[in-house]
Computed example of a mutant assay.
Amino acid sequence: MSVDTVAVGDQLPTREVHLTRQDVVRYSGASTDFNPIHFSDRHARAIGQAGVIAHGMWTMGAALAGVIEWAGGPDHVVSYFVRFTRPVAVPDTDEGTTLTFSGTVTAVENGIATIAIEATCGDDKVLGAAKAEVRL
């Protein structure tokens, strides 16, 4: 990819990522974040959630993964920002839940492309103001 081939309005490939309770528990171990809202419906309900929720950092990382692939590797990422707008509920089923990630080039300047990232789970937008800057 070069600065000459990227233009404002370009769409990154849409990615769907499936997430199960088993994935959330594994992420808890990998991240050493053992907050019980990530594995216990009882604890999640105690703070007003419908049930277990995914780690925000997992959601943030999953959203960036498509940008990294599009850009050609993590070393191209210059900056990344998100706001967490809605937690990702992970039902206790074999199917779990599905998140959809997409991106649009909103600026190209001095060899840096700015990507606006959309992250949804069903009809819910789970990240707001998500954007990455990547070196072309």
Score class of each variant (00 low, 15 high):
Val126Gln: 02
His76Glu: 06
Ala54Gly: 13
Phe34Lys: 00
Asp94Gln: 10
Ala107Thr: 09
Val134Cys: 08
Leu127Ala: 10
Gly9Phe: 05
Trp58Arg: 05
Tyr27Lys: 00
Phe34Tyr: 13
Ala46Ile: 09
Thr106Arg: 10
Gly96Arg: 03
Thr98Cys: 12
Ala54Ile: 04
Gly9Gln: 11
Gly111Val: 04
His38Ser: 05
Asn35Phe: 07
Arg21Ile: 15
Arg135Gly: 01
Thr106Pro: 00
Gly48Glu: 05
Pro87Val: 13
Ala129Ser: 12
His76Asn: 10
Ile117Lys: 06
Arg15Val: 14
Met57Ile: 15
Thr104Lys: 12
Thr106Met: 07
Phe34Trp: 14
Arg42Cys: 02
Leu136Phe: 07
Gly51Arg: 12
Val25Gln: 03
Arg26Glu: 14
Ile115Asn: 03
Thr106Tyr: 03
Gln49Tyr: 15
Glu133Pro: 01
Ala63Lys: 10
Ala116Ile: 04
Gly48Trp: 00
Ala129Lys: 13
Phe101Asn: 01
Phe101Trp: 11
Ala46Met: 12
Asn35Val: 05
Met57Ala: 13
Val88Asp: 03
Ala71Gly: 06
Thr5Asp: 15
Met57Pro: 08
Pro91Ser: 08
Ile47Asp: 03
Trp70Cys: 02
Ser31Thr: 07
Val6His: 08
Cys121Tyr: 09
Gly29Gln: 07
Val88Gln: 07
Pro74Leu: 03
Val82Lys: 07
Ser2Asn: 10
Val67Glu: 10
Gly9Lys: 06
Pro74Ser: 13
Gly96Tyr: 09
Phe84Arg: 02
Ala30Arg: 05
Thr104Val: 14
Leu136Tyr: 01
Ala130Phe: 10
Val67Gln: 08
Ile37Val: 15
Ala62Gly: 00
Thr93Gly: 01
Gly72Val: 11
Asp41Val: 10
Asp10Ser: 04
Arg42Val: 14
Thr5Cys: 06
Ala44Val: 10
His55Glu: 08
Val108Gly: 09
Arg42Gly: 09
Gln22Cys: 00
Ala113Asn: 08
Val82Pro: 04
Ala54Trp: 11
Gln22Pro: 00
Trp58Val: 10
Gly61Ile: 04
Pro91Trp: 13
Arg83Gly: 03
Val78Phe: 00
Asp41Ser: 05
Gly48Thr: 05
Asp23Ala: 03
Asp10Asn: 15
Trp70Asn: 03
Leu12Met: 06
Asn110Ile: 01
Ala132Asn: 11
Ala62Val: 08
Ala65Ile: 01
Ala46His: 11
Ile47Met: 13
Asp124Lys: 15
Arg26Met: 08
Thr85Tyr: 01
Arg86Asn: 14
Glu69Phe: 02
